[in-house]
Design a protein around this nucleic acid. Structure first.
Length: 497
RNA sequence: GGUACCGUGGCCGAGAGGUUAGGCAGAGCUCUGCAAAAGCUUGUACAGCGGUUCGAAUCCGUUCGGUACCUCCA
């Protein structure tokens, strides 16, 4: 079996994954800022890294998955007044900041749940780690890489860059950063344009504020991840994930802070997912093209032609590689919906098949083909999580399964062992690793009993060639959203729309 | 302006120096009381122009187009 290789943004190449502590993996992913509702763009990293988490566990690693909640709120835009993002919105909505934070955190959890994302092992909040952040800042000041001005503390990037590889992660050259023509406010406080805030003095109207050695203020955005990741995963840990847009300045700053504070680079493997675009443009507030997750699930948005099930979105995300941009469209999602249904029905059919008992395959070529397709899935996952290819292979197997179900191919065409490999592959890849679920949740027993009765009645009608009655049953069910299908051999199955 | 990345058949989307990705849609056939599924068959794709090579969609150069980051951002 092949070994896991992941693309490390830091070195810009695929590298063999080797954990720091054998058998264990420390995984940190930048979580959401809970000052507003999550949108489609947010779905991508959390689904992507859910699969990373699931896959590592599948490989037998014990994973500590830490994903933060940014609830402290940092400055809106440096070009304007430094203001607390969370605090500002709260005033508009006449809510307490923590009330707002609570609301959007709950909504985020609800959405993650709908996406069938496994909960992180630890979900630390920025407001819950002010002390850790302050002490880390103190440490950086003590080491001479940060300075205080008027109650704010800035990281001295130039000094850091003199002896460290600043900009390597994001492929940036410090001189270029210094040349940026952008005129930013509050720059006069900084010694250098490239410096970033570790702690900001709070303006009087700033709601979220904490006491610190430098006066009342709030932490800079980047410091929270450094403080919390080192607290829970150690000063050096295995994987840090997040969206590509966080590479600079967020992750670059994290590296600089942590390197000074802890004397070593914080992360072995940096993983970044690409953006979701809509009509070719990144989805984001500033582009005014945001589709919230609640809108996506309900279909309540001018762009949306219909509601999309969370699993359809998850599947759609998994059909592309996480490092490629993914363009949203109704057409694409609708195609995914049909595809997922088809694949899932094949999976259900597979579960219903009677396993062959023979050691020998009736059709050696087919048997070999299945074994190869299944074996390749592991290689695809190991090749930087290529879920798209895994799905393609499973799709290749769907006709085989459907043919077995329809009796076109006997199950004895393949050996008992191959059948078991096949069954296992569908379960492991679809459910365990990709975290997919049936579009329709398990029906309740009473409905099932009623359906059994209806099916029985329709069978009887068909047996006496009373097609008027049998069609009526099917049509009425259809208008109630239940699709009845006649299977080969007189059996019937149904799906709920 | 700086720095990256991308441009694949009607649409989405993998791949990557020589062999069908896959999905959706379309066409034909089979099965079926009908329907829906399902099965089989089918598709002269890799932005343009040069170059390297026995061979390039895949490497190099260049042109055009697009995107992202440089500022909060998943």
């Amino acid at each position: 079996m092949s070994e896991l290789y992941i693309y490390n943004s830091y070195t810009r190449q695929k590298e063999k994954f080797e954990p720091i502590t054998p058998g264990h993996v420390g995984l940190y992913v930048c979580g959401p800022t809970v000052s507003g509702e999550s949108h489609l763009g947010h779905a991508r990293p959390y689904v992507t890294f859910d699969v990373v988490n699931r896959y590592l566990q599948h490989l037998g690693y014990k994973v500590r998955y830490v994903r933060n909640i940014t609830d402290a709120g940092h400055f809106e835009e440096e070009g304007r007044e430094a203001e607390d993002k969370v605090g500002k919105k709260a005033l508009l909505e006449k809510l307490e900041p923590m009330e707002l934070v609570h609301k959007y955190t709950s909504l985020f959890h609800w959405a993650m749940n709908r996406f069938n994302c496994i909960e992180p092992s630890i979900e630390p909040t920025a407001t819950g780690h002010i002390i850790e952040q302050i002490s880390m800042i103190e440490d950086i000041i003590a080491k001479g890489y940060a300075y205080e001005v008027n109650g704010s503390v800035y990281f001295d990037v130039k000094k850091y860059a003199a002896s460290h590889d600043y900009g390597k992660l994001s492929g940036r050259v410090l001189d270029d950063l210094l040349e940026t023509t952008r005129q930013l406010d509050g720059q006069d406080e900084k010694r250098d344009k490239a410096d970033f805030a570790l702690w900001k003095k709070a303006a009087p109207e700033h709601i979220m504020r904490w006491k610190s050695p430098w006066g009342v203020g709030f932490p800079g955005w980047h410091i929270e991840c450094s403080a919390m990741s080192s607290k829970y995963l150690g000063e050096r840990f295995d994987i840090h994930g997040g969206g590509m847009d966080l590479q600079f300045p967020h992750h670059e700053s994290e590296i600089a802070q942590s390197t000074i504070a802890h004397g070593c680079a914080p992360v072995n493997y940096w993983m970044h997912n690409n953006m979701i675009t809509i009509n070719g443009k990144k989805m984001g507030k500033s582009y005014n093209n945001v589709i919230k997750l609640t809108e996506l699930f309900s279909g309540d948005h001018p762009i949306l032609e219909q509601a999309y099930h969370p699993m359809v979105i998850r599947f759609n995300i998994l059909q592309s590689h996480y490092r490629s941009t993914l363009d949203f469209s109704n057409e694409s999602l609708q195609a995914s919906e049909k595809a997922l249904k088809r694949l899932w029905e094949a999976y259900e059919a597979l579960k219903g098949l009677t396993a062959p008992t023979g050691q020998e395959a009736g059709d050696a070529a087919l048997d070999q083909k299945i074994r190869q397709a299944v074996a390749e899935c592991a290689d695809f996952m190991n090749d930087d999580l290529n879920t798209a290819k895994v799905l393609a292979n499973l799709f290749d197997l769907a006709p085989v399964i459907n043919s077995m179900k329809g009796g076109i191919i006997g199950t004895d065409a393949i050996s008992a062992e191959t059948f078991s490999l096949l069954s296992n592959a569908f379960k492991v890849y679809l459910e365990d690793i990709m975290g997919l679920q049936a579009l329709q949740q398990a029906n309740d027993e009473k409905l099932e009993a009623v359906m059994e009765l209806v099916i029985q009645m329709r069978k009887e009608a068909r047996n006496r060639k009373d097609f008027e009655a049998s069609d009526k049953i099917r049509n009425m069910l259809a208008s109630a959203g239940i699709m009845l299908k006649d299977e080969k051999g007189g059996e019937m199955s149904y799906t709920i729309q």
